[in-house]
């Protein structure tokens, strides 16, 4: 029973190998959550990394599954990790070729809410980024049509931010039907 159990060495995923080779300075952290590789990328290099992930013939993350954001303003442990960046923009990617998923997270500070739009890389990002703008107020630079998608155009605020009250600020009671253009 004293046999030493051999530790199985997992080969490093190809995507990490290649990112460390080409974009080492962009990577802030790498982790695995429930079988999905999660990398955190510096905002300045986020577009370059995402473009690389999509266009590299060996990686080919051609499917952008989701773009969303997380407001960590009430999660001290998360905030501390990435220089107190309030928001984390999350890109969920899938590669049909490699049949694997990748989650790319980009910390965004509250005093500079802009981040390059990836609508030019994946056309599907158009509405996903509009939703993220609507719910969190992240500004996607270079987006072709950045306006609200879920809330009414004249809505004030970004309701998925943690400081937005759950029951709203009276929007659901106050209506001026004469002004509404339906």
């Amino acid at each position: 029973m004293n046999e030493e159990k051999e530790v199985e060495v997992q080969p490093k995923p190809l995507v990490l190998q290649k990112l460390e080779e080409h974009h080492a300075d962009a990577l802030l952290s790498q982790d695995e959550t429930r079988g999905t590789l999660v990398i955190v990328v510096r905002k300045e290099q986020a577009y370059a990394v995402l473009e690389y992930l999509k266009t590299d013939p060996e990686l080919a993350y051609t499917f952008l599954v989701d773009v969303t954001a997380v407001d960590n303003s009430q999660m001290e442990s998360e905030l501390m990790q990435f220089d107190y960046a309030r928001f984390m923009v999350v890109y969920q990617l899938y590669s049909y070729q490699g049949q694997c998923r990748l989650r790319v997270k980009v910390p965004v500070h509250e005093n500079d809410l802009s981040i390059p739009s990836v609508a030019g890389l994946w056309r599907g990002a158009n509405w996903l980024e509009r939703e993220t703008y609507d719910m969190f107020g992240i500004n996607f630079d270079g987006h072709p049509d950045l306006r609200r998608i879920l809330m009414p155009d004249d809505f004030d605020g970004h309701p998925l931010r943690k400081d937005y009250p759950l029951r709203g600020r009276g929007e659901r009671e106050s209506f001026n039907f004469d002004k509404q253009n339906v």
Binding site: M151, P159, Y164, P165, L166, R167, G168, R169, E171, R172, E173, F175, F177
Partner: peptide, 13 residues
């Protein structure tokens, strides 16, 4: 759905 986006009874309007 006691949330910011849902009308709490259409009889208000």
């Amino acid at each position: 759905f006691d949330t910011y986006t849902l009308i709490q009874g259409v009889d208000q309007f």
